[in-house]
Each structure stands twice: as structure tokens, then as C-alpha cells.
Amino acid sequence: MSERTIAVVTAGLTSPSSTRLLADQLAAAVRDTLDERGVPRRIVVIELRDHAHDLTNNLLTGFPSESLRSVLDTVTRADALIAVTPTFSASYSGLFKLFFDVLDDKALVGKPVLIGATGGTERHSLVLEYAMRPLFAYLQAVVVPTAVYAASSDWGPHATALRSRSTRAATELADLITNTAPSTGPIDPFDDSTPFEDLLKG
């Protein structure tokens, strides 16, 4: 079986951040599940903080810098995506949204996605269902049923419950990955232009 790439996009701001901790936990659970099934895999973690300036510049100039372009390409070509954001003002963070604003709106079509979010209190947990899931639904990604939310308490007394949610979500993502053909990447519009006679027909 050919190697599958899983891109992990995390929008935590501090170091260490609980958002990165959750991203790592989800990535490790997916890795272990795929390893158990003998599926070769590569995991690429993208810290959006490292690209914050380039993302703003892309918004202003209309094109990505070379390093941002390679990140966007990685996500576009990946076989699956794990996307994790902190909860800011009842939604995903601005930095998180900026990345998906800059990413081509066809980049995630049909791609298996696992969504996660962190926050100070459990009261924000539905951010996954009313903010994150609609965003990826709009982008026509295939989001796994289990979304994983981690509040501060999940890193202490409720750590076992968090881990079991992560494992369940990881299994769902691994199922989708193994049942989907490997990503062939996007179609290059410069390789395959529409013949002008077809454009003339309107």
C-alpha cells in the first residue's frame, strides 16, 4: 500500500500550547491506528503561528510567499487533515480562519478531516459543531463524526476520557483514509487549458 500523508494544522499561539498538545494527541492516535493496520504514513505538522505574517501578506498581495506556498501545497496534496484551533470569542481563531481563507477553496474537496478545538471551559465545546463543522462542510471536506474538544480540565482529571475520544476520532479518520484512493493532488490549470473553440461556444 502506498504511503499516506496526514497534514496537521494547528493554530495554537503559545509554546507549549494546549492546542498543539491536542493536535499531537490526535496525530499520535491516527499514527498508531494506521501502524496497527500496516498502512505506511507520514505526518506533517504545520504550526500556523510560524506563517502568520505570510498569511496576512498573502491576503494583501494575492499570492503566497515561497514558504507558505509549500505549506499550502502540503495540505492540498495530503490524504487527510487534522485541524485544531483554540476557541476565540465563540469561534475558531482568526489565524485559523485566515489559513483556510488563503487555501484554495477546492483544496479540501472530498478530503477526510478530523476537527479538534481547545478552550478554557467545557462550555465552549459546541464550537466544533456550530463553527468548525460548517466551515469544513462548506469546503466540501469529509469530516469524521467524532470531533474532539479539550478544556483545561481534560488535561488533568478527565485525561482518560479525552484520550478515548481521541482514539475514537482517530479510528474514524483511519477508516476513511484506508477506504479512499491515495490523493493525486490538484489538477494543474496550466497543463490542461480549455481549448479556445470551447470557450467561444460560451
Binding site: F190, S193, T194, P195
Partner: peptide, 9 residues
């Protein structure tokens, strides 16, 4: 790309 195509046509 459509405009490059038009110029070429």
C-alpha cells in the same frame, strides 16, 4: 489560463 489561450488562438 483562458486569456493566455485566447491570445494564442
Amino acid at each position: 489560463p483562458e486569456i493566455a489561450e485566447q491570445a494564442a488562438y
